[in-house]
Amino acid sequence: MTKPVRIGVQLQPQQADYAQIRDAVRRAEDMGVDVVFNWDHFFPLYGDPDGKHFECWTMLGAWAEQTSRVEIGALVTCNSYRNPELLADMARTVDHISGGRLILGIGAGWFEKDYDQFGYEFGTAGSRIAALGEALPRIKARWAAGNPAPTRQIPILIGGGGERKTLRIVAEHADAWHSFGDLETLTRKSAILDEHGAAVGRDATVIERSVAVDAPPSQVADALVAAGVTLFTIGAGGPDYDLSLLQQWIDWRDSRG
């Protein structure tokens, strides 16, 4: 069964006052976006490296109350920053606050400044990916033990592209995979993901393909749809949160009937 095309926006929680972020969430939901993401960092990634910035999961709790229709989540949570059982319970709580609209976006982590300034061990790419693989069964087990249980099977979106390890973790655990890179990279790694699915006994073609887009749909949409992408996310940064490109993608989605 073909998945419906969905449009997301990543409201980057940087270089802005919280009132500006809240307003952007309101505008995005009113425009008809399907998913509103933030990200899980402690410092800006763009612009002034010491500019304004806010924490991911506290914000998701607020978004769960503010919004009524959109799904919400992080693109993506850094597995290193929280004990897996704690993260699972945070996600379960936001799931209930939102009435079942949370997506658990998660990845292995990469931004060394976050680790250094907040006292986490940076390790290596390999150790961080291994920790992600170990965390996901613990997260699922904690959800199964929670009282009350989550309102639904919380979707897991994994971001990352490591061909041997990360994509195998995606094949084992994810409902959606967020790819980084160009169309050729996406196409090649999507096929590798399907191979990992076969190896672990799962039909990986059911895993939603997700990408970030920074061009109008007239330029890139057809090729990405042909490659199997169904979740398209537009990034918007503070303080202004220009959503004009997002509007183009929403209009494109709606024009598909």
Rank of each mutant, 00 (worst) to 15 (best):
T2Y: 13
K3W: 12
K3E: 15
P4I: 11
P4S: 10
V5D: 12
V9E: 05
Q10Y: 01
D17H: 09
D17T: 05
A19S: 14
A19W: 14
Q20K: 11
R22N: 13
D23Q: 14
A24W: 04
R26M: 11
R26L: 11
D34G: 08
F43R: 03
L45M: 11
Y46R: 12
P49I: 05
T58Y: 01
G61T: 07
A62E: 03
W63D: 07
T67W: 11
T67R: 05
T67A: 08
S68D: 13
A74R: 02
A74N: 07
S80E: 12
R82A: 02
L86W: 11
L87V: 04
D89Y: 00
A91P: 01
I97F: 13
I103W: 08
I103P: 01
L104V: 05
G107H: 00
Y115I: 03
Q117D: 02
F118N: 06
F118C: 09
T124G: 06
A125H: 10
A125F: 13
R128F: 10
A130H: 03
A131C: 02
W143G: 01
A145L: 14
A145I: 02
Q153A: 14
P155Q: 10
I156L: 14
G159E: 03
E163R: 12
K165Y: 10
K165E: 14
V170S: 06
H173T: 07
G181E: 04
G181T: 00
G181M: 00
D182M: 03
L183K: 04
K189Q: 15
A191K: 09
L193F: 12
D194R: 14
V200L: 10
D203R: 05
E208A: 15
E208F: 07
R209L: 04
S210G: 06
D214F: 14
P216Q: 08
P217C: 09
Q219N: 09
A223E: 15
L224N: 13
F232S: 03
A236W: 01
Y241P: 10
L243E: 05
L243R: 05
L245Y: 00
W252T: 06
W252H: 13
G257R: 15
